[in-house]
């Protein structure tokens, strides 16, 4: 049985891949969300701040427009526990910059290039994420 969510997932995935392809073929850059933001945040990429800023503007504005157009039904369902949210944000920010990539850079851009580093990173964060959900959801019951 094919679920509608899977079709939307594949369709959205194709759009994500097309966005990464455009950024690569036009601008010559890897579309990695953590790297584009991180370079702006720590000042290591001041020279191309316009390009990075424009990317982030599009990344925030397009879903905002779609959210309005679709009647404001989308929700993140993020846990209301702000302590967990803050801890998770810290780990995601530090981890992606230490590993030099996240789901978009190592996952989408790395795997599609058969980059061993991208594949290793993806396997590691999938295992760590799965173990975290197992421990914090099923053993501790806090998420």
């Amino acid at each position: 049985m094919i679920e509608p969510d899977w079709i939307f997932g594949a369709l959205g995935g194709l759009m994500i891949g097309a966005a990464a392809a455009l950024y690569l073929l036009a601008n010559g850059r890897i579309m990695g969300a953590s790297g584009i933001l991180g370079g702006l945040v720590d000042g290591s990429a001041r020279a191309d701040w316009r390009e990075r800023g424009a990317f982030i503007l599009g990344l925030v504005a397009a879903p905002a427009a779609l959210f309005g157009l679709t009647g404001g039904q989308a929700a993140t369902h993020l846990t209301p526990n702000l302590l967990i949210v803050a801890a998770a944000g810290l780990l995601v920010g530090a981890g992606t910059r230490i590993a030099n990539g996240c789901t978009s850079g190592h996952g989408v851009c790395g795997i599609s290039r058969l980059s061993v580093r991208g594949i290793v990173a993806t396997v590691v964060y999938l295992i760590a994420g799965g173990a975290t959900v197992l421990v914090f959801r099923h053993m501790l019951g806090v998420i």
Partner: peptide, 11 residues
């Protein structure tokens, strides 16, 4: 780094 990221991603 990827392990730290994965823990935050799961949380």
């Amino acid at each position: 780094g990827s392990a730290l990221f994965g823990i935050g991603w799961g949380l």
